[in-house]
C-alpha cells in the first residue's frame, strides 16, 4: 500500500505508511493513558483512527445520528479578526443564520474578564439587543486571565518575579490575592450580563492557563454565580491537559488542583455548578497528527466517561489534534472532530 498523506502537529504535510501511523497511534495512546492514569485505546479504536487517516476524502463527517452541538468561543471577534468590518450583532446573526451555529457568544475584543469589567455597561446594551434579535442560546464569554492581576497589568506583585528568587511563600500569597480579584470580576461581569441583560449563560474560556490558582478562581466564580442564579448556563473551557501547579497547594472542596487531569477537572466543575465542560488537550508540534489525535482522544474520552454534564471538547488552533496554525486545514479539523465526537461520546465541540 502506498503512503498516506497526513500532517505534523505544526501543520506541515508528511507521508507515512499505515504501519507508521499505527505505531504513532499506539504509542501516543499508551503515553496519554499512563500520564492520566486512564484506560488506553482499544484495538478497535486504534483501527478506527487508522481507517480515518487511510480515507482519502479531504473532509470527513460524523455518522448520521451522532451530530452534536457546536459552540464557539470569542465569537464576536472571529470575523472582525479577518478584517471584515462588521458589528457584533451582525456577527452573531451571521453565525446563527448563515453558519448554523448552535450557540452564540457575545464577547469583548480584549477577551479577559478584567477588561470586560470596564466596558460592561457598553456590553449590556449589546446583549440586550442581541437577545431580541437572535434565537439560539447566547453566552457572554471571556477568559479569567489571572496574569492581568499582577504587575505590570494589575495590583498584585508578580509571582514570576518572586519565584526565581526563591520567594515561594510570597508567590503563593500573590496567586491567592490575584484569584480573589479575578473571582470578583467574573462574578460581577457574569451577574451584569445574566441578571440585567438577558444572557443565557456565561463562558469561562481558556481556564487555568495561569495554573491552579486560576482554576480555583473560575470554580469559585462558577459556584457563586450558580448559587445566585440556579438556572444560569455556565460553560468552562480549559487550557491544557493537566492543571499547572504554579501555586501548587491551592484546593477546591478539599481537592488539590495542581496536576489534575480532565477526568478529575470535570468532577470539580460539576460541583461548582458548571453545566458544560470543555477539556483542552494541547498539540505537540513535533509529532504527527495521528499521534496527537490518539493522545487527545484518550484524555477526552476518560473525561466524557466520568462526566455527568455535557462535554464540549476544545478543537481548534493547536488543541484537540488540530495543527498549531492560524488557518486550520479542513482535512485535519474534520478528522479530529469526527474522531472526538464518535469515540468520546461527545455532547459538543
Amino acid at each position: 500500500m502506498g503512503k498516506i498523506l497526513t500532517r505534523m502537529g505544526d501543520g506541515s504535510r508528511v507521508e507515512m505508511t499505515a504501519a507508521e501511523i499505527q505505531q504513532d497511534l499506539e504509542a501516543a495512546a499508551q503515553d496519554a493513558a499512563e500520564r492520566a492514569n486512564v484506560p488506553s485505546l482499544t484495538d478497535d479504536e486504534i483501527k478506527y483512527l487508522l481507517d480515518l487517516y487511510k480515507c482519502k476524502d479531504r473532509v470527513v463527517g460524523v455518522e448520521e445520528g451522532k451530530e452534536c452541538c457546536l459552540t464557539y468561543d470569542n465569537m464576536t471577534s472571529k470575523i472582525k479578526r479577518a478584517h471584515i468590518p462588521i458589528s457584533k450583532i451582525q456577527q452573531l446573526l451571521l453565525f446563527e443564520r448563515g453558519l448554523g451555529a448552535d450557540t452564540l457568544e457575545l464577547a469583548h475584543i480584549d477577551y479577559s474578564f478584567k477588561q470586560c469589567k470596564h466596558v460592561v455597561q457598553y456590553e449590556k446594551p449589546n446583549m440586550e439587543q442581541a437577545v431580541l434579535q437572535t434565537i439560539a442560546p447566547i453566552f457572554y464569554g471571556s477568559m479569567p486571565n489571572l496574569g492581568l492581576y499582577s504587575v505590570p497589568d494589575g495590583p498584585v506583585a508578580n509571582p514570576g518575579d518572586m519565584l526565581p528568587l526563591g520567594k515561594i511563600e510570597e508567590s503563593k500569597e500573590a496567586f491567592e490575592q490575584m484569584a480573589e480579584y479575578a473571582i470578583k470580576d467574573m462574578v460581577y461581569v457574569g451577574s451584569e450580563l445574566y441578571e440585567k441583560a438577558g444572557a443565557d449563560g456565561i463562558n469561562f474560556d481558556t481556564t487555568a492557563a495561569a495554573g491552579d490558582a486560576e482554576f480555583y478562581a473560575a470554580l469559585k466564580a462558577a459556584e457563586i454565580l450558580h448559587d445566585k442564579y440556579p438556572d444560569m448556563g455556565i460553560e468552562m473551557g480549559m487550557s491544557g491537559e493537566f492543571i499547572l501547579g504554579l501555586h501548587s497547594e491551592i484546593e477546591y472542596n478539599g481537592v488539590r488542583l495542581a496536576g489534575l487531569y480532565p477526568q478529575d477537572q470535570v468532577k470539580l466543575a460539576e460541583q461548582a455548578g458548571v453545566t458544560i465542560f470543555g477539556p483542552a488537550i494541547n498539540i505537540g508540534t513535533n509529532e504527527s497528527l495521528p499521534w496527537n489525535l490518539a493522545r487527545s482522544i484518550v484524555f477526552t474520552k476518560a473525561c466524557s466517561e466520568a462526566a455527568e454534564i455535557p462535554i464540549h471538547a476544545n478543537l481548534g488552533m493547536g488543541v484537540g489534534g488540530v495543527p498549531l496554525t492560524l488557518t486550520p486545514p479542513l482535512d485535519a479539523l474534520s478528522r479530529a472532530s469526527k474522531a472526538h465526537v464518535e469515540l468520546c461520546r461527545l455532547d459538543g465541540l
Binding site: R35, L163, P164, G166, I168, S171, K172, G211, D212, E241, F242, I243, L244, G245, L246, H247, S248, A258, G259, L260, Y261
Partner: peptide
C-alpha cells in the same frame, strides 16, 4: 512535565 511536581518544587530543585 506530567503534572506530578509543581513550579515551587521545581524552583527549589533548580536552586
Amino acid at each position: 512535565e506530567t503534572g506530578r511536581l509543581f513550579l515551587p518544587q521545581l524552583v527549589y530543585s533548580a536552586m
